[in-house]
Simulated assay, not measured.
Amino acid sequence: AFMMEEYLMELYIIKYYIKKALEKNDTDSAALITQKYLGDINNISLNIAVTGESGVGKSTFVNAFRGIDNRDEGAAPTGVVETTMKPEPYPHPRHPNVTLWDLPGVGTTKFPADQYLKYVEFEKFDFFIIVSADRLSENDAKLAQEIKKIGRKFYFVRSKIDNNLSDAKRSQREYDEEKTLQEIRENCIQGLEKQGVASPQVFLVSSFHLHLYDFPALQDTMERELPSHKRDFLILVLPNICKSTIYKKKEVFRSRIKYYAILSAFVAAVPIPGLSIAADSSIVAKVLQDYLNGLGLDEKSLEKVSNATKRSLSDVRHSVYPTVLVAAEEGSRMLPVLKIPIAALLSFTSIYRVLTSTLESLSVDAENVLMEALDIK
């Protein structure tokens, strides 16, 4: 916790010195400090532990969280028996600094809960997700209590809810989905309270339909309880399950635009022919790729939508890539040869305007793609 607070303080200090350098018109210092700031926020790591007893759907949850299917290359292996015998790291396919760890099931190792945490090297994880496909067990409760002792956050996930609802629908004369969900949730909470877990939160999740049930609430809770620098990073890697997720990503991206514009302004102030256009093109290209990856508009994400909707890939991306091409063209436009302060101001304004308008357009595209994908689920 101390290291997190220290890192967060460092980011605040960097932002303070950027402001002071700009107030003194010290563009050299502002640019160097800005580069450090952008480097720091782009290199944040996030390690998420997913644990529980064997056969509860941990690996499927890991895959869904990373936005991939069980059959995709790089997916965590799944099966009806325990397939994870040691902690296995699964980096996010588009954000390698984010890793989900598929841990051995509680009760499948030879260690009780306290030794289990030492075995999996608990200190490297930012938080734990404890998964169960039925009543949360005594092992789950003991593990939660041990995690609490070491000062880490944990979240109970009751998986395979879609299967439970299907069973209830077949067996109940008067099926009520909301009532069934509430009964399952209360049953899990009561079981944990009997095992000594105070005020537990239980999130009902279907890994095959993350937009349904409690995954949005789980997402909100994780965001709220993480330090701000890691919260923003988590938001950018979460799968798009609703318009709210896309809006949050847009706001994180928007908060960073001014720093890229500051870098552009610094380069524009250097009187070397052709340097500004090259730098602006590089900045736009880098940030555009971040937008595409974060908003689920990269090639692989669009391929998934294409397969799910049975539409051609060219149709799916038709509304996306015109936006990208226009932005790239604007960002590459040669700035006129003017006096240094004016050139810097124009470059800042140009990059800020291009990135802001492009982000707005791409977020709308992302919402359209999301709605199209959800229509077939």
Score class of each variant (00 low, 15 high):
Arg311Asp: 09
Ser350Lys: 12
Lys250His: 14
Leu295Tyr: 08
Lys258His: 14
Ala261His: 04
Val270Ser: 05
Lys248Ser: 00
Ile241Thr: 11
Ala268Asn: 05
Asn293Phe: 01
Leu292Ile: 03
Arg311Gly: 00
Ile277Gly: 11
Val267Leu: 06
Glu225Asn: 00
Pro271Trp: 08
Leu238Pro: 09
Pro336His: 13
Ser350Glu: 12
Leu355Val: 06
His229Phe: 08
Arg254Pro: 04
Thr323Cys: 15
Pro322Trp: 01
Asp315Leu: 10
Ile342Asp: 09
Arg333Ile: 07
Val354Leu: 01
Lys230His: 04
Ala265Pro: 08
Cys242Met: 05
His229Ala: 09
Lys286Leu: 15
Leu275His: 02
Ala265Gln: 06
Ser281Asp: 01
Ala327Trp: 00
Leu338Asp: 12
Arg254Ser: 09
Pro271Ile: 02
Ser244Cys: 06
Lys286Phe: 15
His229Lys: 12
Pro227Phe: 07
Lys304Val: 02
Leu292His: 00
Arg311Phe: 11
Thr221Ile: 05
Pro322Glu: 00
Glu223Gln: 15
Leu345Lys: 15
Ser357Thr: 12
Thr221Gln: 07
Ile283Trp: 06
Leu275Arg: 10
Pro341His: 05
Ile272Trp: 08
Leu288Lys: 10
Phe266Met: 03
Ala327His: 02
Ile277Tyr: 10
Ser264Tyr: 03
Asp298Thr: 08
Asp290Gln: 13
Ser244Pro: 04
Ser264Lys: 03
Gly331Leu: 00
Leu263Thr: 14
Ser319Trp: 09
Lys300Ile: 13
Ser301Ala: 11
Gly296Cys: 07
Pro239Gly: 06
Lys300Tyr: 12
Asn293Leu: 02
Leu302Gly: 01
Asp298Asn: 10
His229Leu: 06
Lys250Phe: 09
Leu292Lys: 06
Arg317Tyr: 06
Phe348His: 10
Ile241Pro: 08
Gln289Arg: 13
Lys249Ile: 05
Val337Thr: 14
Leu295Glu: 01
Tyr321Phe: 13
Arg254His: 11
Phe266Cys: 11
Leu338Arg: 13
Lys250Arg: 15
Val337Gln: 14
Glu251Asp: 05
Leu238Ile: 05
Ile283Thr: 12
His229Trp: 05
Leu302Cys: 01
Ser332Phe: 13
Tyr260Arg: 07
Arg256Pro: 07
Pro239Tyr: 04
Ser276Ala: 11
Pro271Ala: 04
Ala268Phe: 01
Phe253Asn: 07
Ser319Val: 10
Lys250Ile: 07
Val324Thr: 02
Ser319Gly: 14
Pro227Arg: 09
Thr358Tyr: 05
Ile351Arg: 08
Met222Glu: 03
Ser319Tyr: 11
Leu335Phe: 10
Pro322Val: 04
Tyr291Trp: 08
Pro336Phe: 10
Val267Asp: 10
Phe348Pro: 03
Arg311Trp: 03
Asp315Trp: 13
Ala308Arg: 12
Asp232Glu: 13
Thr309His: 08
Ser264Asp: 05
Val320Leu: 04
Thr349Leu: 15
Lys304Trp: 08
Ala261Thr: 03
Val287Gln: 05
Arg333Phe: 05
Pro336Met: 14
Glu225Thr: 01
Ala278Pro: 03
Gln289Cys: 06
Ile235Met: 01
Ser301Glu: 11
Leu335Arg: 02
Leu346Asp: 11
Arg333Ala: 13
Ile246Glu: 01
